[in-house]
């Protein structure tokens, strides 16, 4: 094997090592995050001991660990991975580094669904109604994406424009609702849209994790096609054996599904879907076979970090994860981008 191939294989190995390291760091952070919280009955050490069965905790301690902290930490990992992967997929297949899971209109659809549920009087109790509605409406958006994909000569730009249109329309309808809503409903809607990882219960999170884990291999399957699409436009793709319009439609449906499964439960969480793929690219380049897993682990780590800081820094006050992501992630992201300017 000649030197060029050898170097390539070595570089690939290094990249895989990086991904594995970030993954390990995320898991370690998860264990640490489990030990952090505002309860005075549990400190980090005893939490870890109870988790690993070295100590038996009281009912209250077990409830806190397994029904409050564990679902939250798991949701951060899975949700972060899902949104980051969705973002990476979308950026690649639309050939545009500025898109994110919130671009396609899926998030606006979910918000509209939640608004319906809240304002049409399905009140505080099972916010399952809000979740179901949010998911249902985002599926409608997925349907629109599929219809669009089946039309002839639809370009990447078309999807972005339709996403913008859906966002505007949903926004207008939600505004109309808020006009007629009561004080209470307005508050509920506002708080829903902040995004929070504490909403899904343990069983919800297990379901979500299962769904996302099932969808991940599908994401990886598109890696080669994404490499082609993201590099050079439709002509280039066809000449490499990739049908741009059906591929694009399928990948976008996948991203939309991954996004809606998460935000139906958590509310709107932005930033991670945009930033995690970019951060990954800075580290690992644009080969989607590595970019997808790398984005996923970066997404998990970001989400976990932001959520943990948001709930501990001013405990017991919780700063919504979406806000923390922007506060921590934004400047860090800027720093990374500035570092990389002019470096080839």
């Amino acid at each position: 094997m000649d030197s060029i191939s050898k170097k390539y294989i070595e570089d690939s190995r290094t990249q895989v090592t990086i991904i594995a390291s970030v993954c390990a760091a995320t898991l370690l952070s998860a264990v640490i995050a489990m030990g952090l919280g505002s309860s005075s009955t549990l400190d980090s050490i005893s939490t870890i001991k109870i988790m690993f069965g070295l100590e038996s905790g009281s009912d209250l301690q077990s409830a806190i660990i397994w029904e409050l902290r564990f679902p939250r930490v798991l949701m951060a990992i899975i949700g972060g991975a899902a949104l980051a992967t969705a973002g990476a997929l979308m950026q690649g297949c639309l050939g545009n580094p500025l898109v994110s899971p919130l671009t396609l209109g899926v998030a606006s659809g979910a918000a509209l669904g939640a608004a319906f549920a809240i304002v049409l009087g399905i009140s505080i109790i099972p916010n399952l109604a809000i979740v179901a509605n949010a998911f249902l409406f985002s599926l409608v958006v997925v349907g629109i994406i599929i219809q669009l994909g089946n039309m002839r000569s639809v370009s990447a730009e078309s999807y972005i424009l339709v996403g913008i249109a859906i966002t505007f329309i949903s926004g207008a309808i939600v505004s109309t609702f808020t006009y007629f809503a009561t004080d209470a409903q307005l508050s509920q809607l506002t708080h829903w849209s902040f995004g929070s990882l504490s909403r899904p219960s343990l069983s919800n999170v297990v379901w979500i994790s299962g769904a996302i884990i099932c969808l991940m291999p599908s994401a990886m399957k598109w890696a080669w096609d994404l490499n082609t699409l993201s590099l050079g436009g439709d002509d280039f793709a066809i000449s490499s054996g990739v049908d741009p319009s059906s591929t694009r439609r399928n990948i976008l449906v996948l991203s939309a599904l991954m996004t809606s499964i998460v935000i139906a439960f958590t509310g709107l969480i932005g930033f991670v879907g945009l930033a995690a793929p970019h951060m990954s690219r800075l580290v690992i380049g644009n080969d989607y076979r590595k970019l997808i897993p790398c984005s996923a682990v970066f997404g998990s780590f970001l989400m976990l970090f932001a959520d943990t800081v948001g709930r501990t820094i001013f405990a017991p006050v919780i700063i919504p994860v979406g806000i923390m992501l922007a506060i921590i992630g934004g400047p860090f992201f800027m720093y990374l981008l500035l570092q990389n300017r002019g470096v080839s």
């Binding site: 919280g37 505002s38 309860s39 005075s40 009955t41 209250l60 409830a63 806190i64 409050l68 902290r69 009140s123 505080i124 009561t182 004080d183 209470a184 708080h191 929070s196 504490s198 709930r311 405990a315 017991p316 006050v317 919780i318 700063i319 919504p320």
Partner: peptide, 23 residues
């Protein structure tokens, strides 16, 4: 008003729970 960690409510172990009656 503010979001709080449910753990903090558990910690406080209140004697009485009240809820806003508007809804």
């Amino acid at each position: 008003t503010t979001h709080v960690d449910m753990e903090a409510i558990l910690d406080a172990n209140p004697d009485v729970l009240m809820f806003d009656g508007i809804v």
